Simulated assay, not measured.
Amino acid sequence: MNISQLKNSITTIVNSDASKSQKLQAICDFLKNEISYYDWVGFYFKNGDKNELKLAEFAGEPTEHTIIPFGKGICGQVAVSNQNFVVPDVSAQDNYISCGWKVKSEIVIPIFVNGNNVGQIDIDSHTVNPFSKNDEELLEFVCLKVADIY
């Protein structure tokens, strides 16, 4: 994983003339295509004034989890904790929402705008324990860039 090249590509996407939705979709598509163990990449954002997340752009198999209550599953827990959550093996998690039998691990990084958690990027992998500090660094960078266009 060449983090510098990946960050440069993300910056290029964010700085393009595309709409916010097109940029978010391009980020999802790019990450899924560039990183072999990113099998599903999506953004969830706070759903108005409700204590729930709503699925926005994503790349990968469709999911029935388009609305996630705060506190439920990995994404819902990140909405409450405001902390990165790396799950090496989803089968070891009590509070996990299964998006499919192929998913073995997950990483969720929150997006902050003016100190408020407005959403997150969610990555599912069909590989057990593939995520490293490099993934966290890259995805934290992605979230900073997404905050600029939110």
Rank of each mutant, 00 (worst) to 15 (best):
M1P: 05
N2T: 12
I3K: 13
I3V: 15
I3S: 02
Q5V: 01
L6H: 13
K7M: 13
N8H: 11
T11L: 12
T12R: 14
T12I: 13
V14G: 02
V14D: 04
N15Q: 14
D17L: 09
S19L: 04
K20E: 10
K20A: 07
S21A: 10
Q22M: 12
Q22K: 15
K23Q: 08
Q25K: 10
Q25W: 04
F30H: 11
L31K: 01
L31V: 05
L31R: 06
K32Q: 01
K32I: 00
K32D: 07
K32A: 08
N33P: 00
N33V: 04
I35T: 11
I35R: 06
S36R: 13
W40T: 09
W40Q: 08
V41F: 01
V41G: 05
Y44A: 06
F45D: 09
N51A: 08
L53V: 09
A56P: 00
A56K: 14
E57K: 15
F58K: 01
A59C: 15
A59M: 05
G60I: 12
G60L: 10
G60C: 06
E61V: 07
T63W: 06
E64N: 09
I67P: 08
I68Q: 02
F70L: 10
G71M: 10
G71W: 15
G73R: 08
G73E: 02
I74F: 06
C75R: 07
C75H: 04
A79T: 07
V80E: 06
S81Y: 02
S81L: 14
Q83M: 15
N84M: 13
V86I: 13
V86G: 06
V87R: 06
P88I: 01
D89T: 02
S91H: 14
A92Y: 07
Q93G: 01
Q93L: 14
D94I: 12
N95E: 02
Y96N: 05
C99A: 05
C99R: 03
W101D: 09
K104P: 04
S105C: 10
I107H: 00
V108G: 04
I109W: 04
P110L: 01
I111F: 04
F112G: 08
N114Y: 09
N116P: 00
N117F: 03
N117C: 11
N117W: 07
V118S: 09
I121T: 10
I121M: 12
D122A: 11
D124M: 01
D124T: 01
H126K: 12
V128T: 08
V128N: 07
P130C: 06
P130V: 08
F131T: 02
E136Y: 06
L138C: 00
L139I: 01
L139F: 06
L139N: 03
E140Q: 13
F141R: 06
F141I: 14
C143Q: 06
C143D: 03
C143I: 02
L144Y: 08
K145C: 09
A147Q: 00
